[in-house]
Design a binder for these strands. Structure first.
Lengths: 100, 100
DNA sequence: TCATCAATTAGACGCTTATCTAATTATCAA
DNA sequence: TTGATAATTAGATAAGCGTCTAATTGATGA
């Protein structure tokens, strides 16, 4: 476990808070995030596609938004991509909201 | 204290989750919410205006978004409006994110 | 009553974004 | 090598949103 996760010490910039809030504001991305988060193992991109009526291009766009926000980590093997929820970042976001 | 607050039993609909996420996705509304939340007493609308370079119309629009999302409660006295953060709703939202 | 002030509403403008198809890049297997 | 497949990128389109000014509504006080 990383030091950040152990200590709960992730400090989000205001910019990242904004990116996360925007990422969560789209219902489709919320679904994607839930699916990715429903399993601790990396979720394959193709598996995600199979569960949603969505074009590959649109899915790619959404995954990039989630990645840019820091909410998911992507791992690539050959031509396949898989995604993992970064729970520590999501937690840092909810913690931040709690300080309001 | 209401039963909902006491029990932490607020159940947000998917629709409200979406409204809250959208409400939080705008930096200006985030600022407004922080200001309102910084005091337990209701925050006067005019006091908010004094702190932001914003037109009355735009402020009114943002406050309506926050109210529609259920994040603030509005109280009116004569021609004045005041806002209070609904912490239980915000808490319900962060709790929901935590279930992802 | 009437002028003033707080707030909302109406309408317009420009920017952002969600979505698609088509084209491209990269990988794998026959 | 070549054809098929996974994913990304480019470009277009339509809808949504933040912002403003102007007009309106509603309350206050002289």
């Amino acid at each position: 476990m990383s030091a950040a996760k152990r200590a709960g010490a992730i400090r989000l910039s205001e910019e990242q808070v904004h990116l996360i809030a925007k990422a969560l504001a789209d219902p489709r991305r919320m679904e994607l995030l839930r699916q990715i988060g429903s399993c601790t193992d990396p979720t394959q991109c193709t598996a995600i596609r199979d569960c949603h009526s969505i074009s590959a291009a649109t899915l790619s766009h959404h995954m990039k938004e989630l990645e840019t926000a820091g909410l998911v980590m992507v791992t690539r093997e050959g031509k396949f991509a898989s995604y993992t929820l970064k729970r520590d970042v999501l937690r840092a976001y909810t913690d931040r909201l709690g300080t309001i």
